[in-house]
Structures are given as C-alpha cells and as structure tokens.
Nucleic acid binder design. Structure first.
Lengths: 336, 336
DNA sequence: TTGTATGCGTTATCAA
DNA sequence: TTGATAACGCATACAA
C-alpha cells in the first residue's frame, strides 16, 4: 500500500491538504494554476488519492459486484464483458464472484457484500434453493440489485432477461417442422424460473402440434460431465428420441459426445438444438442450431439499469423488466 | 451503504466499540460469552464491519486485481476461474479488468491500482508497446505483481508460463511428420515475448527437418475477425500452405472459416493445429488438434504465487518462474 | 477482560 | 481562493 499521502504532497507543495484534495475533485473552487501545479507534483510522486479513505469519507465505493454461477461459460463471460465495458466508462470497478451453482456460496457472497464493499450487485442466480429471504435483506438496506438471465421470481428487483418462452416455443416448433415426433428436453434445474419458462415453451409447442407430452423425455441433468454422459446415453438408448432441445449450452455438447459414443448420426437420426452463446457453433460437427442470446447486450443493459438505480433510484420501477430477443439460428444439426 | 455501524451495535449491547471490534478479530482477547453475545446481536442486525474503514485502518484491502486482455476467451476465463477459487479460499476478493489488448487501458488500470485498492496484481499483458516503465513504478512501491502466460521480458517479477518453445516445436514437428512442407505460422503480435518463444519453436523445428524458412508464411494477424478472414484467404490462395499452426485459439477458428469459404478440405488439403483451451475441440468439424495449456492450473499457480508474495515476500525470488506443460492433443485436423 | 483515546487518508464545512 | 478542523467506521496501544 502506498506510503505517500495527501499530507506529504501538501507539504511538498507548501499547501494545505484541503487545497490538494480540491485539485482532484472537479466541482470545487480552486485556481487553475494551483490545480495544475498540484497535479504536476502528484504525477511526479505518482500520487493517487487513497481509494479506501475516499470511499470511507464519501460513503460509496464506485464498485459493483457481479455474481455468476460459472465463469468458464460463453454466455457469462460475454455478459461480464458487457458489464465491464459499461462500468469502465462510468469509472466503476467490478468485483467478480463465481457461485459454481452453489447456493451456500451465493448467500455468503451476498452477505459479505453488505459491508459497503460494493454499491450495487448484478447477479445471475444459482437457483438451488427456495429460501431467498436473504435477498430481501438487500432491498431493506437499499443495496441496488439487478438480475440477469437467471432470476428468482419471488424477489422484486429490476431484471434483464430474454424472451425464453417464445424462443423455446420456436425452437421446439422448428424441430417439429423438421420431422421430429419424440423431442427430448434437457434441463439442469427444473425449478429455476428460467427453466420453467423455457420448458413451458416446449410444452406448448408440443400441444400446438398435438404431440403428446411424455415426461420420460424431460431430463434433469447435473453439473457433472460424467453423470450427464450416462444420463444422456440411457435416454438415447432406452427412450430413443428423434430430437433434442437443450436449455443450456453445455447439454448440447454433452449430447454431441453421447451421440459420438453411441455412433448416432446428427441430424439424420437425431436433431439437436440448444440455447448457446458459442461463437463457433458453425464450426461444430455438425454445425449446431442455436437459440443465441445477446449475451454482451444483456450485460450492457443490466449494467445500465444498475447505474440508473445508483444515479436516480426514483426513476427505476422495481418491477422493471427488460426483455431482449434471442435469435434462432438454423444450422446443420437440425436439417432434414 | 449501511447506516448501522459498530457504535450502534456497541450501544445496543451496552459495550464499548473496542470490545465489539474484538469479537470480529480472531487473535484479540475477549471472553467467549461476550464474543458470542456480540456475534449473535450482529447477526440479528445483519451487521458487518465496514470494509473500507477496516482496510483504511489495517492498510490492506484483501483484494487482488486481475488484468487480462480479453474476457470472452476460454483460456482467460478458465484462468480467472482458477484465481477466483484460490482467492476465495484465502478470503480475498478479485477485481477484474479487461484491456481489450489496448495498451492505454493497461497503463490506466495499473496506475489506478496504485491507490491502495488492491494488495496485488495478477496480469497477462496486452503487449502492444515497448514502454513498460510504468510497471517499474509498481516494483518501487512494492505492490506485488505476478505475470501469467503473456509477460514482458524486461520486467522482473514472478511469472507463471507454459513451455511455449517446446510446445511449438512439437506442434510444428507433428505437422511435418504428417507430411506438411509449407507450414504457415499465424500470430497476433510478433513482438510479444510469448509470440517470440512460440515462433522460435516453429523456426527451429523447420530447421531440424531442413525445411527452408519462408517469411511469407509467417502472418501477423489482427484483432478484427473481418480483416483476419481476408488476410487468411489471401494466404491460402496466394501462398498455398499445406499446414497451419496458430499461436492463438482465435486464429484457428479463423482458419476454419476461411477454409469453409474457399472450400478447402481440412485435413486433406490443409492440416491445422493451434494453441487452444477450447473444451469442445473434439466437437469441431474436423476435430481440432490442439496445444492445450492447463489454464485453470495456471490461474491457481499464479494466485498461489501472489499470496506467497503477500504473506512472505522474502521467500519469493523476483525471478521466480513457474513453467507448466501444455499438452499436444492430436485430433482429426492434422490426420494424414 | 473491557474501555478510552487516537489515527488510518480523505473530503466537507466553515472561517479567513 | 485557500486553510483549519471535524468526521467517515474501525482497530490498536494503552490504561483500567
């Protein structure tokens, strides 16, 4: 940590600390010459106002926390990228926390953030449990929170999501139009709101085309690659779907691997479509039909929303919901 | 920000602030009962010691900064994941900064971090310019810094890298053994140390097999997808290599796209190998032969090194260099 | 074992 | 326009 502080700089300049302080604040009265003299000297000594002292004094941290389930995921890294850009423009810093889909960690992060470390939180939830009251503590303390993509429905706070229901409906419809009659739906956590909406789109699309719903075709997967591989192989062998719709990118990959293992041809024997932000989906074998969310845009919108809450809280409706559209991009994995 | 502070908590308990403070510090003398009474009350009011006040007092932030060129990149997101895990275990938080390969941003981030915001820095450099003196300012102030993967050679600080020279040599040798005689080497920035070592491995492997070096085959690419596409197509058409070795993941993808566009068959007409941390390399069309760096491990090692510097600076040699091995994973893109 | 008093580095208030 | 001073919330040295 730095040793050189505002006092020493003031002494070196023969000025008071208050005058020096003013040189770093834009709105204060200070003569142009002194200001420049101070800044020059500051550069010389490489002085920067101590962040912790400033923030203690100013009661805000110019920092926002971003909580995501995982980092090694195209969707989240693109979203974080978007958030980072907005934050940087605003002169804010971002703290990153990965819950690894662990509810305990999520609660622990949130609790710790109550200590003034961050001015606001942008979060995509893990969704493992049902007790979200810890989040209400946040709202009592008025620490602004914005959800993106994965949200808790029982918590009222602004959110940025995509048109999951419609996308799922279209994706399922697309599979049906390509001739599928037995469409499996792969999900990580049925109970999470995002899972529900996406699943409802699937269910309603089946209904529209009078395809009976079969709950053996709705498969709850895990976070373990090995387990998923087993689950999927069993599905493919025992139930024998002719189409697969995955609510999460990872499960589309898992489906590919399972098909490779079982020597099942995509798309001839099985058509695959998945939610995915993978930029190289066209390079897969076969190229993967995706429902692609505007990940970076989501991050940007979430950050903008949070900054609006920070700058003018009264202008933000706690029920505000920004819905962005995903795109269905048809590729070889769903060809006839 | 929170309104409830240590004073209020002390008042509510009929104790002094110092006693309350002690309840949150492990080493201090305090009776078990009072401690528990205090912690219970703290939970009730959801009190947490203010982070900025503590850190101002203690002169350390329990925060480390991570600076990377880009976020939407498998290597970096995996590395960050590794760093995050170690930091969390140590009770540290991580700040993330993306330079987007912009030297100006890098300098600006570093300068701002001089204000006590972070106790240390883990960085993979952008490498755009040659003036790294701003980093020496860091070392004067003894703000610990660890490089990983992309480093500046002229800055003395501990680093975690991979055996780039050997990997490149092996990769090139592999292409030669598969029958390639005209091997292109794609790079983003020739001047960056990592680029140099990787390139030297390529050059020496050619020499070993008495293949003449042709500098039309060494191609400096950009950060723009569109430009790279043009550059690569020109290379493929005008120079006509029979093998491509990319020093960066992104360029392997670019090569695939260019081949798709030109209807060039991989691996029959062109064999491709690239540095890549892509987990789904086996799913590409054709599956991509990769030099895979242990990204998460690199992040973990870098973080461990930084914490060693923070906890026992005298035990860390500033020239310390941890070298991890990459793996050459042969897949279809380089088959005969 | 607990309480008192001081200072960490900064900025806002007020006075000059 | 500039300077003196108090306060932000906390943790430690020292006293009790």
């Amino acid at each position: 940590m730095q040793n050189f502080n505002i006092k020493e700089l003031a002494k070196a300049l023969g000025l008071s600390t208050s005058t020096v302080s003013r040189a770093f604040r834009d709105n204060s009265d200070i003569s142009k010459e002194t200001k420049e003299r101070i800044l020059a000297k500051a550069r010389e000594f490489n002085y920067q106002p101590n962040h912790y002292a400033s923030n203690l004094r100013e009661q805000r941290s110019k920092t926002i926390a971003v909580i995501v389930p995982e980092l090694a995921n195209n969707f989240f890294s693109q979203a974080i990228h978007g958030i980072e850009r907005v934050a940087r423009d605003k002169g804010y810093h971002i703290l990153i926390y990965a819950t690894e889909d662990d509810y305990e960690k999520e609660v622990s992060f949130i609790r710790h953030l109550h200590n003034g470390r961050a001015d606001g939180i942008i979060m995509s939830v893990s969704g493992e449990a049902n007790d979200h009251t810890y989040l209400n503590e946040l709202s009592q303390k008025r620490l602004p929170l914005v959800f993106f993509d994965r949200v808790y429905e029982d918590i009222i706070t602004p959110r940025v999501i995509t048109n999951d229901y419609d996308s799922s409906f279209s994706a399922t419809e697309h599979l049906i139009k390509q001739g599928c009659k037995k469409i499996a739906y792969l999900v990580i956590n049925k109970n999470l709101s995002i899972g529900k909406f996406r699943m409802q789109g699937y269910i309603d699309a089946l209904a529209k085309y009078e395809i009976p719903f079969d709950d053996r075709l709705v498969v709850d997967c895990t976070n373990s690659y090995a387990k998923n591989n087993l689950i999927l192989k069993r599905l493919l062998v025992d139930v024998g779907p002719d189409g697969v719709f995955t609510s999460v990118e990872r499960l589309a990959f898992a489906t590919y691997y399972a098909c490779y293992d079982l020597n099942i041809q995509i798309p001839q024997q099985l058509r695959v479509i998945g939610f995915s932000s993978l930029e190289i989906a066209p390079l897969l074998n076969p190229s993967l039909t995706t429902v692609t969310q505007p990940a970076t845009k989501i991050g940007i919108e979430a950050a903008n929303l949070l900054f609006k809450m920070l700058e003018a809280p009264e202008t933000v409706d706690p029920n505000e919901e920004i819905v962005l559209n995903s795109k269905l991009i048809k590729r070889r994995s769903t060809e006839k």
